[in-house]
């Protein structure tokens, strides 16, 4: 993940408190989603940025997860997500497994 983004997320977590924050990820490849999910929970897996070795343990969801889908306006969800969902190369299950796995590590 972009190094400056990591720095900003770290600062937000410190200032606002992990309990008030939720991270939502939009990468539609499991590789990208996994890196993002790991970075905000267990730390930057590439050991390149400010979150290397920093375990923020932020709750993280993928935009394709049912929890997110059912919470937001359905017409907006269709506009923003429907086409991309039709164009996926991987299964929704494989993609959302990344954020689920990252959350399991928080328990």
């Amino acid at each position: 993940m972009d190094l400056d983004n990591q720095a900003q997320i770290k600062e937000l977590a410190e200032r606002l408190g992990v309990e008030n924050l939720v991270v939502v990820i939009g990468a539609l490849d499991s590789g990208g989603a996994e890196i993002a999910a790991m970075t905000v929970t267990s730390g930057d897996p590439t050991y390149a940025g400010p979150l290397a070795g920093v375990s923020l343990r932020l709750p993280v969801y993928h935009v394709l997860e049912p929890e997110v889908r059912s919470s937001v306006d359905q017409a907006a969800y269709q506009e923003e997500v429907e086409l991309m969902e039709m164009a996926l190369e991987e299964s929704v299950e494989d993609i959302v497994a990344t954020t689920r796995k990252a959350r399991e590590g928080l328990d």
């Binding site: 499991s30 590789g31 190369e89």
Partner: peptide
């Protein structure tokens, strides 16, 4: 597993 930008565009 970092996707295939060309293919993603075509599928869109």
């Amino acid at each position: 597993e970092r996707g295939d930008t060309a293919k993603t565009n075509y599928k869109m």
